[in-house]
């Protein structure tokens, strides 16, 4: 298995924050919001789910350990074969995964 790049399968991500909490280098940032489930009846206790707004990964901090991939209970993170693109600054290494 090549530890080259981490890919996000957005359909599987539930914004549960487990990868962001397990990451030893703190390179994953997630923001999400709550939306009511479309088929749930409206009311004071309407059922909701989390919707992912952005998933950022700072490749300048990531050490390609794969803990986030191992820990994800929904298999939303996978190894990719390409390497992250080169940038001119450390700040530009933060990439929004889609």
């Amino acid at each position: 298995m090549t530890h080259a790049r981490i890919r996000l399968v957005t359909d599987r991500c539930t914004s549960c924050m487990i990868c962001a909490r397990e990451c030893p280098t703190w390179c994953i940032g997630i923001s999400s919001h709550t939306e009511p489930l479309p088929d749930s009846p409206p009311g004071p206790r309407q059922r909701t789910h989390h919707v992912l707004d952005s998933f950022t990964l700072d490749w300048s901090l990531c050490m390609y350990c794969g803990i986030c991939i191992e820990e994800c209970p929904f298999d939303a993170l996978e190894w990719d074969t390409e390497v992250p693109r080169a940038t001119a600054s450390a700040a530009a290494m933060t990439e929004e995964l889609t």
């Binding site: 539930t14 914004s15 549960c16 924050m17 962001a20 909490r21 397990e22 990451c23 703190w26 994953i28 940032g29 997630i30 923001s31 999400s32 919001h33 709550t34 909701t48 989390h50 707004d53």
Partner: peptide, 23 residues
């Protein structure tokens, strides 16, 4: 000194002050 990205709860845009988590 750096805010922990995992301090947020799912569905929160910013870390909630009430249910704090520490790394």
């Amino acid at each position: 000194v750096r805010p922990w990205p995992g301090a947020k709860e799912p569905g929160d845009v910013v870390a909630a002050g009430r249910r704090r988590m520490v790394p």
